[in-house]
């Protein structure tokens, strides 16, 4: 098995809001191995972006703060790095693309300027070298006439093109990890497929590890090697993609998979998990899914289940698989 590149250990990222403390990331642990594509899935608001932003250390503070845990990158605890050392990693070793390609590029600078910026800054290239490299990158992400694009402004490009440019910027310094936070959510379906193709290309050709955030199980099925399922700030299940699709164990994961439309099996209505995501403010110590769970037991309402591997490499946080739960 490949070497571990990133490891979250008991990460706690909280937001202080006027309504109370939001434990957006609550005791999250998982690892990403070199060259692996790991998908983080879960409903909106479950803490996927905050987990990624904690890794980048770009949590808006206040109100947010990483209050506990460790994030290792190649064995170094990022949370112990100085601001300067962290900013050297950012954009160079760890790059990130976002959900909103339309607003993620600075409207007043040319594409060329925005692509060459990290090259000049992190790799100390000359203007000329940087330009040549930028043209290469634009070509690589599949945009024709790179010379013209280099001198264009973001508003002259479509959403799909802009996301390609974001990918080009992210890949400019050949990062070891690429974080993609819902990179296709804001795009048309056909463009989505193209962007996913591009990402898969990157994965196979460059062996970059990818942390892909999505709520779309279709994307997971296409991209992931390994999957982490989050619910209300906690990891509730993790497994390899095949394992997870073959045997989802947590009732929430099962619900998610059931909610996914499958061709040839058209049903009257698509399944949806009953109930709603709990209010993230001041969540208690219990299984946060308990009030939506059809297997809910007494213990689920009072105690949070531990995340444990009951099968090799497949971890689940659910009382159904624990002695305490089985006893009931």
């Amino acid at each position: 098995m490949a070497k571990e590149l990133v490891a979250f250990r008991n990460l706690e990222t909280h937001f202080k809001t006027s309504a109370g403390t939001v434990k957006a990331v609550n005791d999250v642990s998982f690892s990403i191995r070199e060259g692996e594509t790991l998908c983080v899935v879960g409903e909106s608001g479950c803490g996927k972006s905050v987990t990624a932003m904690s890794l980048m250390q770009l949590i808006e503070s206040p109100p947010g703060k990483i209050v506990g845990g460790e994030i290792f990158f190649e064995g170094k605890d990022l949370l112990k790095l100085s601001k300067k050392d962290m900013s050297r990693l950012r954009g160079k070793e760890i790059a990130m693309i976002f959900q909103e390609p339309m607003s993620s590029l600075n409207p007043v600078f040319t594409i060329g300027k925005q692509i060459t910026e990290p090259l000049l800054y992190h790799l100390n290239m000359t203007q000329k070298e940087a330009k040549a490299r930028a043209i290469e990158l634009i070509t690589m992400v599949g945009i024709p006439r790179p010379e013209k694009i280099f001198h264009s402004y973001p508003h002259e490009l479509s959403g799909g093109m802009r996301q390609r440019i974001m990918i080009a910027i992210a890949l400019s310094c050949d990062p070891k990890l690429l974080i993609a936070d819902e990179p296709t959510t804001a795009l048309d379906v056909t463009i989505q497929a193209q962007i996913l193709d591009l990402m898969r290309d990157i994965k196979t050709k460059r062996n970059t590890a990818i942390m892909m955030i999505t709520h779309d199980l279709g994307v997971v099925a296409e991209m992931a090697d390994f999957v982490v399922v989050m619910y209300a700030g906690k990891v509730i299940e993790e497994a390899s993609v095949l394992e997870l699709f073959r045997e989802p164990r947590h009732p929430y994961t099962q619900g998610l998979l059931k909610a996914k439309p499958v061709i040839n099996q058209r049903k009257e209505r698509l399944y949806s998990i009953p109930g709603q995501v709990p209010n993230p403010v001041d969540l208690g110590e219990n299984c946060h899914f308990h009030d939506r769970c059809e297997f809910c037991m007494e213990i689920c309402k009072t105690k949070a289940p531990p995340l444990r591997a009951h099968i090799d490499g497949h971890k689940t946080a659910c009382w159904l698989y624990e002695e305490e739960g089985k006893a009931q």
Binding site: L58, S87, L89, R90, K92, F98, N106, Y121, H122
Partner: peptide
């Protein structure tokens, strides 16, 4: 956010 993510 993008500019920050570039490590500038």
């Amino acid at each position: 956010r993008t500019a920050r993510a570039k490590g500038l």
